[in-house]
Design a protein around this nucleic acid. Sequence first.
DNA 1: GCGCAAGTTTGCGTGCGCGCATTCTTTCTG
DNA 2: CAGAAAGAATGCGCGCACGCAAACTTGCGC
Lengths: 207, 207
Amino acid sequence: MTGLREQKKQATRAALGAAALRLAWERGPENVRVDDIAEAAGVSTRTYNNYFSSREQAIVAAVIADRESRVAAAVVGRDADVGLGEAVIDAVAGQYEDEGGRDALLMITGSPALRACYIDTVAAIEDPLAEAIVERCPGVDTLTAQVLSAGVGAAVKVALRQWLRPTSMPGFVMVSGSLTDLLRTALTPLRPALEAAGDTEVSRCRL
Amino acid sequence: MTGLREQKKQATRAALGAAALRLAWERGPENVRVDDIAEAAGVSTRTYNNYFSSREQAIVAAVIADRESRVAAAVVGRDADVGLGEAVIDAVAGQYEDEGGRDALLMITGSPALRACYIDTVAAIEDPLAEAIVERCPGVDTLTAQVLSAGVGAAVKVALRQWLRPTSMPGFVMVSGSLTDLLRTALTPLRPALEAAGDTEVSRCRL
DNA sequence: GCGCAAGTTTGCGTGCGCGCATTCTTTCTG
DNA sequence: CAGAAAGAATGCGCGCACGCAAACTTGCGC
């Protein structure tokens, strides 16, 4: 499946992302129309919407790369003797450790639309995470894994919203404390649910 | 705050919702433009977007009424000797018991856009639910309550997606089993987290 | 009542998202 | 290698969401 077709698709996708990020950085995110991005990448605006379904997605996608696969890999690659909760929390917190550079983050947080889009990208980790959970704990059924993943995604969204909450001073965002700590705090309430699911699986396997 | 101003706002909002629902029922959801809804309600299209931020919201809003307040009320009104998990699960499952009539649901599930919008309305319960949790368990901090509510919302979304999943026959949706049962099943994995939060509060209160 | 401050409706203009049909390119098959 | 089949890019058109500023309505104090 590595034909010339796929290569071109990834190339244009990367070109669109790079162009979007560069233009947003130069003129500010609000002064970039999709026409500009498409023109800078050498495609038509209609083609842009074949790759990204909103104006902000290209910019955000260029920053986060492919986080979902890294989270999933971190979950399945963790030692088998640690609980599911610890594995998931560490995986998620680890992937947000040094995300995309601080300056890009600053720009994203400056625009409400970009903030919303950035927060929405968390949803992309849910399906891979669910698969990772069933792979790590074969006794957990699919629905439970989906619910737990969705819960994790929701907790991460809450944490990000909190972290990026704009203060009274408009144009600035409160970057109080490390994001990692906030993520761990936000995920802690879900830990009992994760451990319960993981333990159920373990005891079932050992019986 | 019950001035003539609020009355008028609620009146036009109700008129818009009713008109949207009636037109969608008559012509099918896909053949209703916002211009039609606005005209039927006697306002301009721009005013429509002051009340609803998407074409589907008016239709869906007319069906679900105000579910969020009912869920929150059910949580705080439940006997204090039952656990938080049971209270929340019963409240959520109860409010979806006989939602808006089966025919309206059928119409919503027929259109992908309406389905998505209907599923998104679950997010509206999260903030009131978080407040209800802190009111019921004063020892739970705000962030934990928000995370738990967001987790509940995410679980409900998973359940609805599952319940409304279109089958191979296009235009029809699988209504297999009762929604209530599916909701309880989907919420069960989160029960340990809810109970743990509630118990922490209780022991703290009794110390 | 009178008039002002606060809030609402509306028209206008712009950009966005996407369905549809067409054209061009890549890949597959004989 | 030629032609067909599958897939991607593009042009066109429509409807939607929303910022902005101008009219208009409501509520409040005097």
